[in-house]
C-alpha cells in the first residue's frame, strides 16, 4: 500500500513537472510592447485583417504593420487608455517602430507562402491563426530559450490529438491539413 502511494505521488509529481514545471523552464515570457485589442479594431473600426496585415508583393509574408499605418488613424489618442497614450507619444510622434513579437514566426528553414494559401486555396486567416484576430488583448509571447522560436509554433497543448485551428503550427499540423485537402508539397515545398 505504501509502495502504491509512493508510486502515485511520484507519478503525479513527474506529470506535474512535465506539464507545468518544464515549460516554465523552457520558455521565457516576453510582453508585447503594447496592449493591442484586435476586437475593437474589427468591430468599432470595421477593419479587416488585410487592412493592416498586407501580403507582400512576392506573396510570402503577411506583414506586421509599420507604425506609420497606425499613425494614419492614431495621430491623436483615440481614447483614454494608457496604451493609447504610449502609442502616440512614444511611437507615432517620434516615428519609432513597435517591436511586436510574432507568435507564428517559423524557423529559418521553413518557407510559407501566404499568397498560395490565401489567394489560391482561399483559406481564412482563422484556419491557421485561430481566434487571435478577435481577441481583446495581446496574449503574452513565450520564447523557447533553446531555439529562440515562439511557443505558439508548438501550441499550448501537450497532447496533440484533435487540435483546433490555430492551436499549433508544427510540421505535423501543416502536414495533416495538406493531407486532408489532398495536396502534397514534398519536403522542399515548404523547406528551403
Amino acid at each position: 500500500m505504501r509502495v502504491l502511494i509512493a508510486f502515485l505521488l511520484g507519478l503525479a509529481g513527474s506529470l506535474a513537472f512535465g506539464w507545468w514545471g518544464f515549460p516554465q523552464l523552457l520558455y521565457q515570457r516576453e510582453p508585447q510592447p503594447l496592449q493591442y485589442n484586435h476586437k475593437i479594431h474589427i468591430e468599432k473600426g470595421s477593419m479587416e485583417c488585410s487592412s493592416c496585415h498586407e501580403v507582400a508583393a512576392d506573396g510570402q509574408f503577411a506583414g506586421i504593420p509599420r507604425t506609420a499605418s497606425c499613425g494614419a488613424c492614431h495621430a491623436e489618442p483615440l481614447g483614454k487608455t494608457e496604451a493609447e497614450k504610449i502609442l502616440v507619444t512614444s511611437y507615432v510622434a517620434p516615428e519609432r517602430e513597435l517591436d511586436w513579437k510574432v507568435y507564428s514566426r517559423q524557423p529559418m528553414n521553413v518557407r510559407f507562402s501566404h499568397a498560395v494559401h490565401v489567394n489560391k486555396a482561399a483559406m481564412k486567416c482563422e484556419e491557421c491563426h485561430g481566434g487571435r484576430g478577435s481577441a481583446t488583448a495581446a496574449e503574452p509571447f513565450y520564447r523557447n530559450r533553446v531555439t529562440g522560436e515562439s511557443r505558439n509554433v508548438w501550441g499550448p497543448r501537450m497532447i496533440r490529438v484533435g487540435l483546433k485551428p490555430g492551436e499549433g503550427m508544427k510540421m505535423s499540423d501543416c502536414e495533416s491539413c495538406h493531407e486532408q485537402k489532398g495536396v502534397s508539397a514534398g519536403c522542399l515545398g515548404c523547406h528551403r
Partner: peptide, 18 residues
C-alpha cells in the same frame, strides 16, 4: 535552385495559379 522554384510558385499564386 529550389528557392527560384519557390519564387516562381509565389509569383504564380499572387496571380491565382499554382
Amino acid at each position: 535552385c529550389q528557392s527560384r522554384l519557390h519564387a516562381a510558385q509565389d509569383a504564380a499564386a499572387v496571380n491565382g495559379s499554382l
